[in-house]
C-alpha cells in the first residue's frame, strides 16, 4: 500500500466512501435542483399568475438590471451592510470579552455559563415580539424606566434616528451569546501547557492574553465571524416584526426587500434574481474569511 507523507493513517476505500458520501449526497440532492431552478427562473418573468395560466417568458437579464437600477434595492444593500458590520463587530467583541471574563474567573461557573446563553435560546419570533412591547412608545417598559430618571419617552421603533439601532440592539442581545459560546468552547480546548510555560517565564496575565490566547483564538473566531456574517446578512424576522423596514426604509434589509417585492407575491423571477445578487454580495464580503478558512482546510495539505 502506498503511503503518503501527509496521510499518517491508512484509509480503507470502502470505509471512506461509506463515511463521506451520505452527507454529500443529501446535500447535492437537496441543493442542486433548487440552485438550477433559481438560476433558470431568474431569467424569466415567472409569477404565480403565469404559473397557473401559462405564458412565462424569457426576459434575459431584465430582473437583474431592474434590481441594480432600483434605488430601493441599493439602499437595502447599504442598510444590510451597515447592519451586518455593526452587529458582527459588536457581537464579536462583546461575546469574546464575556468568554474571557468567565473563563478567566478561576473556577468557571457552570450556572453562569448556561445563564448567559439564554438570549440565544429564546424563540426568535416570540422574543422579538416581547422586545416590541418593551420598546413601545406609550406603555413600553423602557420608556417607563427612562421616565423614572426624568428622560422623555423615545419612540424607539418609529423614529428614523433610533429604529435602526433598536433593531441592532435586539440582534446584539440575542447573538452575542452565540459568539460567547463558540469562543468559550475554543478557550476550553486550548492547551493549558502553553499558559503554564509562559507563567513560569514570568509573563503577566495581560501578556499571556495578548501573545497566547488571542493568537490561539484567531482561527476559531474566523469561523464564528463568518457564521455571524452569513446569518446577519439575511436578517429578516426581527425587521419584519419590529419595523417592517421603516421608518422610510431605514431598516429595510435585502431579505426584507426581496420578501416585499418578490416572495410575498410569488414573483419568482424577481425573487430568484435578487437572491442570486444577494448571494454574490455576501460571498464577496465574506471573501477574506472564506479564503482564510479555505486555506486552513484545503491548501495546507
Amino acid at each position: 500500500m502506498e503511503k503518503k507523507r501527509t496521510q499518517l493513517v491508512d484509509h480503507n476505500r470502502v470505509f471512506t466512501n461509506v463515511m463521506v458520501w451520505p452527507a454529500l449526497i443529501i446535500l447535492l440532492l437537496t441543493s442542486l435542483l433548487p440552485i438550477i431552478y433559481v438560476l433558470v427562473t431568474s431569467l424569466t418573468d415567472m409569477t404565480l399568475i403565469t404559473m397557473n395560466r401559462g405564458g412565462t417568458q424569457w426576459v434575459g437579464l431584465k430582473n437583474y438590471i431592474d434590481a441594480i437600477q432600483d434605488k430601493d434595492f441599493l439602499h437595502s444593500i447599504w442598510v444590510t451592510v451597515k447592519f451586518t458590520l455593526l452587529a458582527v463587530v459588536t457581537e464579536t467583541i462583546f461575546g469574546t470579552l464575556l468568554a474571557l471574563f468567565l473563563h478567566g474567573s478561576g473556577r468557571p461557573s457552570k450556572l453562569l455559563r448556561t445563564l448567559f446563553l439564554f438570549p440565544m435560546l429564546c424563540p426568535p419570533i416570540t422574543i422579538t415580539l416581547i422586545w416590541q412591547t418593551m420598546f413601545s412608545n406609550s406603555y413600553g417598559i423602557l420608556n417607563q424606566i427612562l421616565g423614572v430618571f426624568g428622560i422623555a419617552p423615545v419612540n424607539w421603533l418609529q423614529d428614523i434616528n433610533t429604529a435602526f439601532y433598536s433593531v441592532l440592539w435586539v440582534d446584539i442581545w440575542q447573538y452575542a451569546p452565540f459568539v460567547f459560546l463558540l469562543v468559550y468552547v475554543a478557550l476550553c480546548q486550548m492547551p493549558q501547557d502553553l499558559h503554564e510555560a509562559a507563567a513560569l517565564d514570568g509573563a503577566n496575565s495581560f501578556q499571556r492574553l495578548r501573545h497566547i490566547t488571542l493568537p490561539y483564538l484567531a482561527k476559531p473566531m474566523t469561523v464564528v465571524i463568518l457564521l455571524r456574517l452569513i446569518d446577519t446578512f439575511r436578517l429578516f424576522d426581527k425587521v419584519n416584526v419590529l419595523t417592517k423596514g421603516g421608518p422610510y426604509n431605514s431598516t429595510r434589509t435585502i431579505t426584507m426587500y426581496i420578501y416585499q417585492r418578490g416572495y410575498n407575491d410569488l414573483d419568482i423571477g424577481v425573487t430568484s434574481a435578487t437572491s442570486i445578487l444577494m448571494t454574490l454580495l455576501i460571498l464577496l464580503i465574506a471573501f477574506p474569511y472564506i479564503r482564510s478558512s479555505f486555506k486552513q482546510m484545503v491548501q495546507r495539505r
Binding site: 399568475i49 423596514g245 421603516g246 421608518p247 422610510y248 426604509n249
Partner: peptide
C-alpha cells in the same frame, strides 16, 4: 393585481413624510 406593491412604495414615502425626512 399589483396593489400590494403599490401600497408598499406608498407606505415608504408616507413614512418619509411623517418622519420629517
Amino acid at each position: 393585481t399589483n396593489w400590494s406593491k403599490a401600497e408598499e412604495v406608498l407606505g415608504a414615502e408616507l413614512s418619509a413624510a411623517v418622519s420629517g425626512v
